[in-house]
Design a protein around this nucleic acid. Structure first.
Lengths: 347, 347
DNA sequence: CTGAAAGCGCTTACAG
DNA sequence: CTGAAAGCGCTTACAG
């Protein structure tokens, strides 16, 4: 609990000098420097960052806010961001909003209060006025995975419409299914809306009727939605699922209902989590280059911070279809974890 | 960017009064209160928590530090802690140390600097002097999942020795295997040491030789370790894996090597992640009551904060064996996700 | 009930 | 190169 003042006293210098030494200011005479360093060591001095941040009006940490910490999509992203940020001398603190607007607002306030220099946000609520408030304070935001209403934020997202369209087409054209259902994510989120739209567009083009279950991006809800869908649609023979967590729920429901995959119901999942190749049967998925996208988000944030750029940027990444066994044998069924059969072009 | 001073000016009161109103002090006259509230609204005042924390020497946030954000064991825990904390008016910020001592030290400093009121720590480095420094500052720490050298910290851990022993016994006594290998976690961590010890003890008691691969709690390392183990031990017919992430790696290696599970190699995994019942074949696991343990850690932290208790507590939870299909048909093989076949007693 | 004033621990123009 | 001093935005004994 030593302060700069105490260190200064012990080293027989002013606290200004102590501060300069501790911050690596070169213009301090070597002998004073040594004295200060020794005194600091003796007293086990630790800088009080709160005071420092108050004075400097900024910290060295960036905030990451995710909507669901239990979703590997986000944890992989966070890991990549943290790695890159740490190497450049930044620290990252992470908050989980649990898909609720209230928590998102609360945590954005916490991060703003801690004077983070920037925020990467996977929004639970894109219209949250706190987003605007944070931006007003001059703290840059990069929307990740999900866009945000305030146009001043940069955004890194996947081509979600195309992904769902490719998934649906695959089930119909390659796997020969006709009664293809869709387990949707949260429709308050553009990403959820877009994935639904891709499915609907594809089915419309194919002249097939749509069958919807609402999973809200949650495992449990998806399980329930799948159960209901199966009960109401005995002819269902294909299923597109809007994210990886919901796929776990849907698989459980399919098993409980005694449905065989792919014989009874063929399945394609959006997102390509680590276990996709290991489940029974292995999952055909549409994966995003998650780590690459996370790095891009971090770069955009750094760019905003360092260049004072004001024009917002939107970066869209393509998904990639990974054909495995959940749709039956389709042409040359590749081995475990083999990828890249089809690459969605970026518009 | 309005300050208390500006609000005070506009409301024609002192900044002390503004502060009191904003902090819910009851002794402020109703008319002043209204004026202050109006002025604050007009100016879009937002409290600067950094200044507040500096002055009060404390915040309302608790810190959680995990060693691997990509491990569902930890993300489930974090989710539970956040839920409970948020309901009680606390905020939680999360940091990832990536199993490195350096990052752990850096993030403990960040949290201490932010004046968090307490820390729940899944240690990457149990002997880290920063832990002691933080404790010295009067910030309580609860060690989670992994104990910590400084005896002043509370701890919530699993009965790891017993878990590995049960896993090993199951492979030998129930599944009839003789050449059972072990993919170990990090041996710098007590949890890693204990799980190894449980395996070794069991094999010793059974009069069988041990076969070790080092996975370091990491997916990729475990994959490599398993590959090496298979190459060196063609007779290997059983495998205990020390955590869930490594199980993914081991399964990949087993498949690549053309080994059938359970026919060629029977597998038991420590940890029971959401996908355990869905992989092919479904995994026999030893699971901990993760969410319950996380809540217990939070309770201990709150207890320390509110009661100024000094005597540290250690809480040990038992694992539960979940028999599925990765060890072959054993007696009454239960259905998917059925649990509770054997409960490890707590010493 | 209310205000003037001190102080949390740091940083940084400003002089010299 | 170094120090005295102001100030970051808030809270809180202390008086009245």
């Amino acid at each position: 609990v030593a302060t700069i003042k105490q260190v200064a006293e012990r080293a027989q210098v002013s606290s200004a000098t102590v501060s300069r030494v501790l911050n690596g200011d070169q213009r301090v005479a070597p002998d004073l420097r040594t004295r200060v360093l020794k005194a600091a060591r003796d007293l086990k001095y630790r800088r009080n960052s709160v005071a420092r941040n108050l004075r400097r009006r900024q910290s060295e940490t960036i905030g990451v806010v995710v909507s669901d910490i239990e979703n590997p999509h986000f944890t992989q992203s966070v890991r990549s961001i943290e790695d890159a940020a740490y190497k450049q001398g930044y620290r990252v603190i992470l908050c989980n909003t649990d898909e609720t607007a209230e928590k998102q607002s609360a945590y954005l306030e916490v991060l703003a209060a801690e004077q983070v220099i920037g925020i990467i946000l996977a929004a639970a609520s894109p219209s949250d006025p706190t987003i605007t408030a944070v931006l007003d304070m001059g703290i840059p935001i990069v929307a990740f995975d999900r866009s945000v209403d305030d146009q001043r934020a940069d955004a890194v997202i996947g081509d979600n419409i195309e992904a769902a369209r490719v998934a649906t087409d695959h089930l119909v054209k390659k796997a020969g299914r006709r009664n293809v259902g869709f387990i949707s994510g949260r429709l308050e989120i553009q990403t959820g809306v877009d994935r639904l739209k891709g499915y609907q567009d594809a089915m419309l083009d194919l002249g097939l009727p749509t069958v919807l279950g609402h999973g809200g991006f949650r495992l449990g809800s998806a399980q329930q939605a799948t159960r209901d869908l199966l009960a109401d649609n005995p002819l269902l023979d294909g299923l597109v699922i809007a994210n990886n967590l919901m796929t776990i729920g849907a698989l459980k429901a399919l098993r409980t209902a005694g449905k065989r995959i792919p014989d009874d119901v063929a399945v394609v999942s959006i997102d390509d989590p680590p276990w996709a190749a290991l489940v029974d049967p292995s999952m055909t998925t549409l994966g995003q280059p998650v780590r690459q996208m996370a790095l891009r988000a971090f770069e955009l944030l750094m760019d905003q911070i360092t260049t004072q750029r004001t024009a917002a940027r939107v970066v869209v990444f393509s998904f990639e279809l990974c054909v495995r066994h959940s749709c039956g044998s389709v042409e040359s069924g590749p081995a475990v974890s083999n990828r890249s059969v089809h690459s969605v072009p970026h518009p």
